[in-house]
Design a binder for these strands. Structure first.
Lengths: 117, 117
DNA sequence: TAGTCATTTCAATAATTCTGGAAACGACGA
DNA sequence: TCGTCGTTTCCAGAATTATTGAAATGACTA
């Protein structure tokens, strides 16, 4: 379940240029994920720096790690992303109509949040 | 348009317990918003501390301020929230099928991101 | 104009975070 | 078992952030 503390941790993990780039790359990479070295090579980040950021994202529940031979694959944790969005948009406009552009955002999230028009 | 820098600023603004509480309160309050003092009273935050956080959220584009008499009303900026979610979920799973739970998240956002299944 | 109220700015301190060099670890191949 | 490769941990310094007391601003009222 999402709590303010968990949400703050997740948001703080994303609130850094390198980590945001890593996370978005993994969101696009899909459930199979990418090996740490592959991410570092693609983004030009030193291994130890990347390791620090991957750990931060994983601790925040945004990434899952799995070992495969000598490589460690990191993949985005989609349910956490979903929960975070639901938390942010929860009970948006007190259940009323939002601005048009936002109206249809996060269908699943808002359904869970109990504020779908 | 959303850029990594803008997204990082917005996420950093939300990545703090007090600010997240303020933002969520305003998301639920709707477009009319709430006066600064009202927010502070409800959350038990000293005026100067709250002012600092409101400024941070406003600078990140997440809040809009409007003066009304002696009061200043703050309201959530829904399009920014929408853009941020779109940026995070952009091209999710490389256009393929996400995990079931996430599949229907952010309908508007994903449509804009060009990755709707 | 003087006074009050809502809010902001200033300033200083304490705490947290980012970064990269060096060393360690763990899995594999020869 | 030795060497290599991918990754992580340890460490220290530099930078950023949160908090709050005190003072300033700006809008309204008497």
């Amino acid at each position: 379940m999402m709590t303010p503390t968990i949400a703050v941790d997740a948001l703080a993990a994303l609130a850094q240029e390198t980590r945001l780039a890593v996370f978005r790359m993994l969101v696009q990479a899909g459930p199979a994920g990418l090996a740490a070295g592959e991410i570092g090579a693609q983004l030009g980040i030193p291994a130890n720096t990347l390791s620090f950021h991957l750990k931060t994202l994983a601790q925040a529940g945004l990434l899952a790690a799995r070992q495969e031979g000598r490589f460690i694959y990191y993949a985005a944790n989609y349910p956490t992303m979903d929960d975070l969005i639901a938390f942010l948009t929860q009970n948006c406009c007190n259940g009323g109509q939002c601005l048009p552009k936002t109206e249809q955002v996060a269908t699943t999230a808002r359904r869970r949040a109990g504020s779908l028009a």
